[in-house]
Design a protein around this nucleic acid. Structure first.
Length: 652
DNA sequence: TAGGCCCGTT
């Protein structure tokens, strides 16, 4: 410390060390003013007390006191002390006053590597990675913390490639990474789903003996799971020296992200049994698993646990609850939770807009979007995606296209592939197939299988068999194993009665070993999940269901229902075609539900594939004949059947 | 002295 920055003023007779301890306690508890007023003499005696106060200012977020301390530091001459000046720099930077920090930095009599590191952190905090890197690049001397600051900065904002290349550079220069570096680098690998690089870093972790570090091990497991290697991830967690809630969260999230939703819920129950309390992150993972499985009973149970633990105050948890209720078919409950919200958060609004979209309630989605704008919230790319989706699934072509045009113009959000996919859907439904194709070919992003498949579906709706052939080529070039595209293509050709081409499609499926994904429907009844698959007799009531369904179909035929065999491949005998149609999994599930629930009770069915034209027609008849509300969630949206009509307006 | 790194939302 500088010689002349001390002005010894001993005004208190208490022993110095006792006063110093009391001072530290006051600071750490946030009683900054009290500490300052009572122990001013300490500050004058030892400038390190300024550091203590400044730390407290950061915690308490008090800018005014920081400024007061700043003038004192100047008048006392302590600005020459590099500890104190760095703490001051850090306080400004943390309090979001980077401009003041930079001015101070320029005037500092003594700077060191820490001063630079603090400013790099400050730039990262405001998301200005370019300036952060410039500062990093221009600093003369660097230490490990400098590399960590810039690497974690890049991974925080998903610039994962840059983070990894910096890591390679740093390693090459002989810096040994620590737990901070490795945590960030593994996060980068996870973001890129780069299993090879991740394994390389794992080697590095072992070499440095950091495999026992809880955060490093957790990150390592997360990296494996995000990259699709559930097993390796679970092995890492199992061999961790101690279990933490974060480790359980990693396991649960890993399963959920790999489509193993039942497994995620099993682990959730297990973690509670072994005595860990789920936290907000656990809840988000398990609630989204319930959304996918549409197991409303479990979802409600978790909802009540969320309320009990107080996690209901967390915006992310509430958003996932909204999404869960809507994906379970309970739009009313989703609305209720949304209206009870305590915070204005874009994610909450997006969740609700998306919920309306799933249920084909485009008008509500648009209304909500305008309400959101009135409240002064700016939409992000997800909000706009939900809105476009809602428009396309409600037949609101003009509104949808209008919003797409406003994306860049008004909302300043660059469209991504998913937005284009919605627009292709909008144009496709409107029969503007050529425009849709032109859009795909002129986008600045590379098309994927999904966007081509969207156009292929539109070709099916508008029975354009020629275009379907050329578009199918595009889909199958990208994903030659996608059974749904073959089926779609075969069906378009079948509806144009091009039987020769239908057989060709079937043959190429066979040659390439592509099998049609079996349709599965399921529903929850008294907290138990019942699955139905065509031809599968494993359900205890399957024989009774078959008999009931046969009678039901006969009844429907009297009402005017004619099975539509257009959705089945043609070379089957008519009777066999009818058998297959009658036994589609959703019909089985609905028959089961009719048999096992009281009259008037709404029926909720989930299906892994899209509902076919024949089932859609049959369910309309069932809803009228049996006077039941039937809600079917297929792989793309909700269908609410009531009194012989469907909410999708026969457009899906 | 700083960074508090991993797991979650629409």
């Amino acid at each position: 410390m500088g010689q002349s920055c001390l002005r010894p003023l001993r005004l208190n007779s208490r022993p110095f060390s006792t006063a110093s301890t009391e001072f530290s306690i006051l600071c750490s508890q946030g009683y900054i003013k009290e500490a300052f007023n009572k122990f001013t003499f300490l500050i004058w005696n030892n400038p390190s007390h300024f550091s203590c106060l400044l730390q407290a200012c950061i915690q308490k977020n008090t800018f005014s006191l920081t400024k007061q301390l700043h003038s004192l530091i100047i008048t006392s001459g302590c600005i020459r002390d590099k500890f104190v000046s760095n703490h001051l720099l850090n306080a400004y930077s943390k309090l979001g006053q980077l401009d003041i920090a930079l001015t101070l930095f320029d005037k500092l009599p003594k700077r060191n590597v820490m001063s630079f590191n603090i400013l790099i952190g400050g730039y990262v905090q405001i998301g200005d990675l370019d300036s952060a890197y410039k500062m990093f690049d221009e600093m003369g001397e660097r230490n490990l913390a400098s590399w960590n600051a810039i690497i974690t900065g890049f991974t925080q904002f998903e610039f994962n490639e840059r983070a990894l290349s910096l890591f390679t550079r740093m390693y090459g220069l002989g810096y040994l990474p620590d737990a901070f570096t490795l945590g960030a680098v593994l996060r980068g690998c996870a973001g890129l789903k780069d299993l090879n690089k991740g394994r390389e870093v794992h080697g590095c972790v072992l070499k440095l003996g950091l495999d026992g570090h809880l955060v490093v091990a957790s990150s390592l497991a997360h990296m494996y799971m995000r990259s699709g290697s559930l097993r390796e991830g679970e092995i890492v967690i199992m061999s961790m020296p101690a279990q933490t809630v974060a480790a359980w969260n990693t396991l649960i999230a890993g399963r959920a992200q790999n489509g193993c939703f039942e497994g995620a819920l099993e682990l959730y129950n297990l973690m509670k049994i072994v005595g860990f309390r789920p936290d907000k992150i656990t809840f988000v993972s398990v609630i989204s698993s319930c959304s996918e499985l549409a197991t409303i009973g479990q979802g409600q149970q978790i909802h009540s646990e969320v309320v009990k633990t107080g996690a209901i105050c967390v915006v992310a948890v509430v958003s996932s609850l909204i999404s869960m209720y809507s994906k379970c078919g309970c739009l009313d409950e989703a609305e209720k939770i949304f209206e009870e919200r305590e915070e204005a958060d874009i994610v909450l609004w997006s969740a609700m807009i998306s919920a309306y979209g799933f249920h084909g309630r485009g008008k509500n989605a648009v209304e909500l979007f305008h309400r959101m704008e009135q409240e002064g919230l700016a939409p992000n790319h997800v909000t706009l995606l939900s809105l476009l989706y809602a428009c396309s699934h409600s037949g609101m072509k003009d509104e949808g296209l209008e919003f797409f045009n406003l994306m860049v113009e008004k909302y300043n959000v660059e469209p991504q592939l998913v937005h284009y996919t919605c627009v292709v859907d909008l144009l496709g439904r409107a029969g503007r197939l050529q425009e849709a194709e032109d859009l795909i070919r002129s986008m600045h992003v590379k098309p994927d299988g999904v966007i081509w498949k969207t156009l292929l579906s539109a070709c099916k709706i508008h029975k354009n068999a020629d275009m379907a052939r050329s578009i199918a080529e595009e889909v199958l070039r990208i994903d030659p194993q996608d059974s749904a595209s073959y089926v779609l293509l075969a069906n378009v050709q079948a509806s144009a009665k091009r039987w020769k081409y239908v057989s060709e499609v079937r043959k190429s499926m066979k040659d390439r070993g592509v099998k049609k994904e079996p349709g599965i429907s399921w529903l929850e009844l008294k907290n138990q999940v019942h699955h139905f698959i065509m031809g599968d007799k494993s359900h205890p009531q399957s024989e009774e269901v078959d008999v009931y369904l046969k009678e039901l179909i006969a009844e429907l035929k009297l009402e005017g229902y004619v099975p539509d065999t257009g959705s089945v491949l043609h070379d089957m005998e008519l009777e066999e075609q009818e058998y297959n149609l009658v036994h589609h999994s959703e019909k089985l599930a609905i028959a089961f539900a009719l048999m096992n629930t009281p009259a008037g009770f709404p029926i909720r069915i989930m299906k892994n594939l899209r509902i076919c034209g024949d089932c859609h027609m049959a369910v309309k008849y069932i809803s009228k004949k049996k006077n039941r509300e039937i809600i079917v969630r297929d792989s793309s949206r909700f269908h609410h059947f009531k009194d012989g009509c469907c909410s999708c307006g026969d457009y899906w």
